[in-house]
Amino acid sequence: MNMQMAGEQMLSEMVAMVFTMVPTIDVESLRNKFSAVMSKFHVTKVEQDEVHPDLHEKIDLFLASIKLEGKSPETIKGYRLELNTFAERVKKKTTDTTAADIRMYLGQFSHLKMSTVGRKLSVLKSFYGWLTNEEMIQRDPTSKLKTPKREKRAPKALNIEELEMLRESCRTIRQRVFVEALYATGCRLSEIQSLNRTDINLQTMSCRVIGKGNKEREVYFSFKAMYHIKKYLMARTDDDPALFVTERKPHRRLSKRGIQREIGIIAAQAGLDKRVSPHTMRHTFATLTLNNGAELAAVQQLLGHESPATTQIYAQYTEERKREQHKRFLVQ
């Protein structure tokens, strides 16, 4: 379709849209005014069934670049998914993409949480910011777009009673190991899922995990966790190197979805009203440890947070803890 035909089609569609909203409007006058404005621009139509190859090419270059920077495979996978979704819906060259295109794209996800929309925008900001720095485009279309404010909600951790209910409801050795390992280490789901048997140092009751940004850190197990881990490994008859494997043969490393499902089953067995996930156990580790007097900087290192501000959100003292602190430190 040439530019003249594309312009005529766009003009007709715009006039028709305005007419449906304001039926009493003078259509001919509106058409003339729109035509005068559009005469200053070259208009090309984006075909609905075609993604411009330039966009996919630039996405591949960007992903290769962040891989060299040391981004984790999980992060790169997430970026690829978000950017491919964007490419399928926007279908424009990177040089032609505007802030309005990105606003319209994000507007399609108004049913999602602001944190999710913010994450999508963050990926686009990283992508177009990189293109601008590499001088592949002249202007960053995301530069004037502000990240949506996140809902201010304290992480939902289990209290001590709920943690004990979770422990007592475990019906298999493996279920108990899930609970104890996730709680004692405060690990992310991906960190626990990728652990191998040989990663665990039985002498120091610790292991090293690879976290966000491909950064390695040491985490620690409790006596309870080590007891149940040893019991679980002794009962295993397979030779798979993974710490957590499927129950059915042939045994293989349990997926992240499999661990999430198992934690949900344990929570249902415990009769807990709240939703419990592997990340809930991480919240529980951070909250109960801080409430018990641990230093913020130490918990920050154990969780693998870059900023203490991220860890600070867990420092929500319980009423009992606040009352105890008041009695202990108030000068009479």
Rank of each mutant, 00 (worst) to 15 (best):
A315Q: 10
G213P: 11
E191Y: 06
S35A: 12
T289N: 11
E135G: 02
G78K: 10
L61E: 15
N84W: 07
T75N: 12
H251D: 13
I200W: 00
G78S: 15
C207A: 10
A298I: 12
D60W: 01
F178W: 11
H52C: 06
V209S: 10
I229D: 02
F223S: 14
Q312L: 04
V331F: 14
S143M: 12
M281S: 06
F34W: 10
T132G: 07
H305I: 01
I210C: 06
S222P: 04
L296Y: 05
T204F: 00
L131T: 08
L330E: 09
L272D: 02
A294M: 04
L55H: 04
A267F: 00
R153L: 05
H279D: 10
H56W: 09
V18W: 07
R139P: 00
Q138P: 00
R275S: 13
M165T: 05
T85F: 00
L254E: 03
M14D: 08
M136Q: 11
E50H: 13
K231G: 01
S307M: 00
G211Q: 07
Y317H: 08
K71P: 02
E74I: 08
A286W: 01
E57W: 13
I59L: 09
A64K: 09
G271P: 11
Q316D: 03
V179F: 05
E151G: 14
M104S: 12
I66C: 10
L254C: 01
V90E: 09
R236Q: 01
Q260I: 02
K327N: 15
S169P: 06
T24K: 13
I210Y: 07
D199T: 04
L302E: 08
K327A: 10
E180R: 03
T116N: 08
F34C: 11
K125R: 15
F109I: 02
K125C: 06
A294T: 06
E216F: 03
P278N: 15
L330T: 15
G258M: 00
K58H: 13
T97L: 11
S35W: 05
R208I: 11
K322F: 09
F109T: 04
A87N: 10
S255T: 04
K146M: 08
R103K: 15
T147K: 09
K93Q: 14
D60G: 02
G129F: 06
S122H: 06
A309C: 06
E8T: 07
T287N: 01
P148M: 05
V27L: 08
V43C: 13
I25R: 04
R197P: 01
R236I: 05
Y314A: 05
